[in-house]
Structures are given as C-alpha cells and as structure tokens.
Design a protein around this nucleic acid. Structure first.
Lengths: 314, 314
DNA sequence: ACCAATTACTTGACTCAGTCCACTAAATGC
DNA sequence: GCATTTAGTGGACTGAGTCAAGTAATTGGT
C-alpha cells in the first residue's frame, strides 16, 4: 500500500541526502578516484575476496566498465586477480597490501567528512540517528519482507507504561474509546505492579527488532483464579501468530502455577480477540451492556477451566 | 562528539542507499535527463522561481555546467528566464507549462520507482519509515543545530501511558528505581484520568517534530490546592528551557484557575528539578526519608503560594 | 563620485566516467 | 554433443562534469 505521503517523504529525503553527501560529481571526495572506483574498493575491502560478477550485481555497475576499473587497479597494484578454481571463466579478486592501504585512506576521508557532519550531535542524538537509519534501511530493503518474528520476554521498567500508551491510543483511534479506558488501563497496571508476585503472576512483552509489538498479563485474581489481561498485538505485527502465542504462553504459565481457571474480560466488538479466546477453549460466562468508554458495547467475561483443559492440543 | 560507531552506521547506510536508489549512473531513471538535469527541474518545480546562483548553492552544482543546462532547457522550452528587476546581472528562472509537465512526468517516474520499493510495507511500517527519515534528515542537517523548539499541547489518548513509560524507564536507568515507582506513576495517572476535570486540571505534553519530549500535570488536590505532578523533560530536549516553560505554564494555569497554592512532591536527588522549582518561587515545606522505589532518598514537599506570587515576573 | 573587488553568469576547451555493442571462452542444459 | 547461458574483455563513442578565462553588473571603501 504505497501511499503518496510516504513516497514523497522518501523523495524529499533523497533530494536532501544526495545533496548532503556530495554523491553528485565525478570524483570521490576530491581524491583521484571516481565514485565507482571508491565503491569497488570499499566492496573489495568489506568482503575479502570476490568475483567480478558479484560486484556487477551488487553495485549495479556495467561489466565492461568494471572490467576496465579492475584492470586499472591491477596495473596500479591495488588488487590482484587469481584464477577461480571453481570456474575457469572468472577470477578471484582481492586487495593487495597497497589496496588495503588505499581503502583505509578513503575510509578515513569519508569518516572525516561524515564526522564533521555530525560532530555537534549529543550522545542521545547520535543514538537516535543510528536507530533511525537502521529502521530506514530495513524498511527500504528489498529482501527480508519482514524479519522472521518476535521474541518474548518479561517486563522491564517502562513496559507497563507502554502497554497503557499503545492500547489507549489504539482503541481511541479504532473504536473511539475515551480517556476512561486509559484510566482503567493505568489502574490495572498500577495495582498489578504494586502487588506483583513473580511466582504467580507474569507479563509477556513481545518485541520485534527491539521494538515492542505485543503484550499479555496474567494476574492473580485470588481463589486460584488467574486473570488474563491486556492482550495486545500491534498493527505492525499482525498475522504472525503473535496473539495465539501470547495466549498459549499465558495458559501454560497459569497451568504450571496451579490456577484452577483463567478468567478474562473483553468486549463483543473485539472479534479477533474473541475468536482467539474461543480457539483456546475459553467460553463466555457473562455478558452485560456498558458504556464505560464512551460508545455502548457488550462486556463479556470468558473463562477457561484449567484442570480439564490441561492436555488439549493448543 | 563524533563517535566511530555512528559514523560507520552512516557510511553503511550511504552505501546501501546509493546502491538502492540508483544514484550512480549518468541518466535519471532511464530518461533523457541526467541526474543533475532532474535535480534542477525538481528544484525549479519546488520553488516556483529562482535565480541561477541559488541553484548553484543549493544543489552544489558547477556554475558553468548549470549555465549550460539552463540554456538547453530554455531552448527546449522547459523554462524561461526573465530579467531580475533587483539585479541586472541575474535572471529569474521559472518553468514553463511544458517544463511543469516534464517535472510532473519525472516525479511520477520517481514516485513509481519508490512506490515499488515500499509497496509491501504496512501502514504502521510506512509511518515508522517516514518518522525515521525525518529524524535522520534533522540530525544530518548542517544548519538548524536543533529545530527551534518544542510545542505544547494538551493530552490525547496514549499520552498518559507515555508519561508512565518514559519516566519509569528513565528513573530506572538513571537512579535504579524499581517497579514500585512505575506502579505509583500508573496510579497517579489512572486516578487523574478517572476524575479529570478540564476546568481545574490540565496536562501539558511537549512535542518536538511529532515526538513527545516532556510533560507536566496540574491536578486538583482539593481545598484549593493544585498538585504539580509528573514533570519530565526527555534527554533529547534538555537545554531548551522546556522544564521552565512547563512549570511556568502550570503556574499560570493554576493562578487563573483560582488555586490558593501549588504543592508538589519530589526527591532530593533530582537536582535540576529542585533548582527549577526554587527558581519559580517554590519552597520546601516538608522532608522525609523513604525507600519506596528501592534506593534510600529524601522525599520533599514543595509549595508555592499563588496569591502573593501572582505578579512576580516569571 | 569613483575605482577596486566581488558577484552573476557565460563561453571555450577538454577529459574521462559511463554506455553500447560485438566478441571470446568457459560452463550449463537438454 | 550441440545450443544456450554466463563471465569477462575490448573498441568506439557520447556527453556529464570541470577548469580557466572572460563580460557585465553590483558592492564597498575612501
């Protein structure tokens, strides 16, 4: 879904970036090398040893042009080409000692150039910049449509706040819920933390690439009843089976912790969540209309008996 | 403080980006224009009217080269140059109808190219990408060391969660406070939202570039006492006077709302905040040791009488 | 008011980065 | 074993970009 706003944001950035980095022009940072020369040198330096075809593919450079560049570098003693044992047509390229020196020189130059560009950045700013570039690169990369998956961990400082933030924002945007919902979230989270008992309670935070994308909580409801709460899967992580995974983890933990049953409260309009609970054996035990969060809806209590359910396949 | 890690992150990104965008090569996206041609056209399109020197500066292009490009475009009917009334040496350039058409054509091409690149991104991913590019651009920009400043607004859904998150994470990292602090934050936020009275209570959220960087809350403490709470300034926004501004806003609001005094609770180790309160006329009325959040510290209650303070310069 | 220095832009002349095409030689496929 | 593909090379060209030297208008100092 390529929306125009994003596209133009990228185009604006490109204009800025090309101008800023002096990509235009025929020589690389005022050295005796062209931009293509420099790219070849850097590439050879990064991967010790390559064949010309690989460079052609990765750098998108013309084969004949590359051939000439290589010949020139070989003549200058920057690289040497040895026959490829696996393919008689091609040769294996690697930088010589002098070539490595040149690579180092160019790198230093480029680093200096960039260093000058960012010297006034504070530590957290530099951090933010790195993070931003990493995100940009990942999203603009052709392969790796989406990095494999999520990881689960227990909560750390700030996680509970994130739970409140993300859910409040999401339900306000999607369903028009008001700030009483955020109040409820904060209350739930606050009292959970206040009485947190690691033996019988747990928070799972799902992360992808260092960003939080989902959560679930099991709280002790007393009387051997576990309360499943605050299930959330970010839009960016839909369709990965994260919701199922969170619910399963929660059930498994509740089972080993010795709870009799798990109960949860949700609302009828949250279809995906309801389906998920149903799939995992939960059944509705109570329904009642309310409009605590603005719009009228039907609140539902779901329960799962653990003793009978223990050996069902999930 | 240009650290090597950041520099190399940028270099890696540049390698990636130049390769990905086909910046190398002499023609722009296979059109009959060179990259420089295209940049000139886009620039002219963006700012309706310019002089050649401006282009030379902004695009970093050689004057003689630009002169020829302009002459060629003029001959092709893409742009027209009228004498500059303010400077007889220079002429004002603007695209003709045909030039605008060409600009549109090139833009469509470039958009298509980029659209193809990001078509598999989901909405939130696209959002994240835009945000990342904006951050990158801001940090890499030469001028505007730091964009003018922050903006203040009242709270929206998710903001209170963000307050909990950012403060919990910050105080855990910097002072080793435990999750009981996050619990307190959540409680404060939860009950504030539950009883929120817009007439006599307010939240200020500071944003910079669409990112939240600070907060403060004035809550009704009953008995005509306003409670100042949850003052926070993100590390990325230190030194902008944001803290002062938030406190001033808060005092001003409390004054017009008719509070008798403002009271707040903080801890002795938070030196910058204490200094800020002192500077605004607050005085300590109570101190007591506690270790609610792990480390032992001295909790302090500060108060500001409003009736006497009203006409002081801030 | 005037002259030197600067600025906006142009022109001539050149070079070499990058492209296109046709080719050889080895490898792969049926 | 023959057709096709792949790796790399060389010839020939073009035009993007550079450098130096100019002209005309403007600015600045005295």
């Amino acid at each position: 879904m390529p929306n125009l706003k994003t596209i133009d944001a990228i185009r604006a950035f490109s204009r800025f970036y090309t101008a800023r980095l002096g990509v235009v022009g025929q020589t690389y940072l005022g050295t005796e090398y062209s931009l293509s020369d420099a790219r070849v040198i850097f590439e050879l330096d990064a991967r010790q040893t390559t064949r010309a075809t690989d460079l052609v593919h990765d750098l998108g450079i013309d084969p004949s042009y590359l051939s000439r560049i290589i010949a020139r570098f070989a003549k200058q003693g920057l690289l040497k080409a040895t026959p490829d044992p696996e393919d008689g047509r091609s040769r294996v390229l690697s930088l010589t000692a002098r070539g490595l020196e040149e690579a180092a020189r160019l790198r230093a130059l480029s680093r200096g150039e960039i260093g000058a560009m960012i010297e006034r950045l504070s530590e957290p700013e530099a951090e933010a910049l790195e993070q931003a570039l990493k995100i940009a690169e990942r999203h603009l990369s052709p392969g790796s449509t989406t990095p494999p998956a999520f990881t689960l961990r227990q909560h750390r400082a700030g996680d509970m706040g994130w739970i409140v933030e993300s859910q409040a924002a999401f339900y306000a945007r999607e369903y028009g819920w008001n700030d009483k919902f955020e109040a409820l979230l904060a209350d739930v989270v606050g009292s959970f933390l206040k009485h947190f008992n690691p033996q019988r309670e747990r928070v799972w935070i799902a992360e992808r690439d260092g960003t939080r994308v989902g959560s679930i909580i099991l709280a002790d409801g007393g009387d051997d009843v576990g309360k499943l709460r605050l299930l959330y899967v970010d839009q960016a992580a839909r369709g990965l089976g994260l919701g199922s995974r969170l619910v399963e983890e929660c059930i498994a933990f509740a089972t080993t912790a010795g709870y009799r049953k798990i109960s949860l409260w949700t609302n009828d309009i949250l279809a995906t969540a309801r389906a998920l609970y149903a799939r995992n054996g939960f059944i509705v035990t109570n329904r009642e209309k309310h409009s605590m969060f603005g719009p009228a809806m039907m609140g539902e209590t779901w329960e799962l008996k653990l003793s009978e359910n223990k050996d069902l396949p999930s």
